[in-house]
C-alpha cells in the first residue's frame, strides 16, 4: 500500500485534482492479477506446457489445434446455444416474477424474500444439491416414483443440457427478479393512472407501459445474463463435469479439462484467449447497439 503521509502532502500541494497515487494501489493489484495474466495467457498459448516442466515455444500449434478441434468447436457452439437458451428461459421468468413481486401486497414481499434464497447458496453447494436431487437411482424422482420427475436428468446428453440450463436459472432468476422488481417500482404511477383513465386493461398496461419502461432494465439484465453464461463454470463443473460426453462441455469447461485434466496448458491458454475475446466482443456489441453506455451515464447522473 502507498505511504499516505508523503503522497498526502503532495496531494494538498497540488492546486487541482486528487493525485494519481491514490488510484495506484487499485491499479497495481488489478494489473498484477488481471492484466499481467492476460499477457501471460497470450504467451502460454504459443507454448507447450504440461504443468510440470517449463513451457517451451511451439509457435501456432496450439492455435491450429484449438481452432480445428471438433471438441473445442463443439464447446463454442454449445456455449452460444447455452447463452441463448438461458436467456430465453431466465428473462421471461424473472421479468414476470419481478413485476409481480413489485406489488406492495405483504404476501408478494414475502414471496420475494423466499425467492431470494437460492442466491445465497454457493455454486458448489447448489450443484451438489441438484446432483443428489436428480440422481437417477437415489434422487427425488427415482425414490418418489413420480414418472414426471423420474428421468435421466444428468445422464442423457440432451436432457443434461437443459437440466443445466434449469439449475443455472434456479440460481440466477432471483437476481434478475430483483432487478425487475426494482425497475418496476421506479415506473411513475402517473403513467398507469393516465392509462387507467383511458380504459386500458391490465394486459395493455403491461405491454404499453411496463415493458417499454423496463427497457433499460431488460438491457442490463440481458447483458449480465449473456456475458455471465459465457463464463459459467462452477455449477457445471460440480454438477456434470462437462458430461455426459460433451453435452455440457462449455468453453470454460473445455478450457479447464484441456488444461488441468489433459495437461495441455498451452492449448487451454489458446481457449482462454478465445474466451476473453468473445467476452469483450460481446460486451462491445451490446454496449454499442443497446445504448447501455448512454443509460449508464444517465444513471450516473441520477
Amino acid at each position: 500500500m502507498s505511504a499516505p503521509g508523503a503522497s498526502g502532502a503532495a496531494g494538498s500541494r497540488s492546486s487541482g485534482g486528487a493525485p494519481f497515487v491514490m488510484a495506484a494501489p487499485a491499479l497495481a493489484l488489478f494489473s498484477l492479477f488481471a492484466l499481467v495474466p492476460m499477457a501471460i495467457v497470450g504467451y502460454l498459448s504459443f507454448t507447450r506446457w504440461n504443468g510440470l516442466g517449463s513451457p517451451s515455444w511451439t509457435g501456432s500449434d496450439n492455435w491450429r489445434e484449438a481452432l480445428t478441434s471438433d471438441v473445442t468447436r463443439h464447446a463454442l457452439w454449445l456455449t452460444a446455444k447455452f447463452m441463448v437458451v438461458s436467456w430465453l428461459v431466465q428473462t421471461p421468468v424473472s421479468l414476470l416474477l419481478g413485476v409481480f413481486v413489485a406489488g406492495r401486497q405483504r404476501y408478494r414481499t414475502l414471496l420475494a424474500v423466499v425467492y431470494f434464497v437460492p442466491m445465497l447458496i454457493s455454486a458448489a453447494a447448489l450443484a451438489i444439491i441438484f446432483k443428489n436431487l436428480l440422481d437417477p437411482n437415489f434422487g427425488l424422482g427415482a425414490t418418489l416414483g413420480l414418472p414426471l420427475l423420474d428421468h435421466n436428468w444428468l445422464g442423457d446428453p440432451q436432457l443434461a443440457f437443459y437440466t443445466t440450463v434449469f439449475v443455472v436459472a434456479w440460481q440466477f432468476v432471483p437476481f434478475h427478479t430483483l432487478l425487475y422488481q426494482a425497475g418496476t417500482r421506479q415506473i411513475p404511477a402517473s403513467l398507469y393512472e393516465a392509462a387507467a383513465i383511458d380504459g386500458a386493461g391490465r394486459l395493455a398496461q403491461f405491454r404499453h407501459i411496463t415493458l417499454p419502461q423496463l427497457r433499460y432494465t431488460i438491457v442490463t439484465s440481458s447483458t449480465l445474463m449473456l456475458v455471465g453464461s459465457l463464463t459459467y463454470f462452477d455449477v457445471v463443473f460440480v454438477l456434470t463435469g462437462g458430461g455426459p460426453g460433451l453435452a455440457t462441455r462449455f468453453l470454460p469447461l473445455d478450457m479447464y479439462i484441456t488444461g488441468f485434466q489433459s495437461n495441455e496448458m498451452g492449448r487451454a491458454s489458446a481457449i482462454s484467449v478465445v474466451l476473453v475475446a468473445v467476452g469483450l466482443l460481446l460486451s462491445l456489441i451490446i454496449v454499442r447497439f443497446s445504448g447501455f453506455s448512454r443509460m449508464r451515464s444517465q444513471q450516473a447522473g441520477m
Binding site: D135, P136, N137, N152, W153, L154, G155, T240, P244
Partner: peptide, 23 residues
C-alpha cells in the same frame, strides 16, 4: 446398463451401492 449410468460418478461408490442395494 442401469438408467443414468452416464452420470453416475465412480468416485462415490454409487455403482457398488446399486449392486448391494439390489438395484
Amino acid at each position: 446398463f442401469a438408467k443414468g449410468f452416464t452420470s453416475v460418478s465412480a468416485d462415490t461408490g454409487q455403482a457398488e451401492a446399486q449392486l448391494y442395494t439390489g438395484k
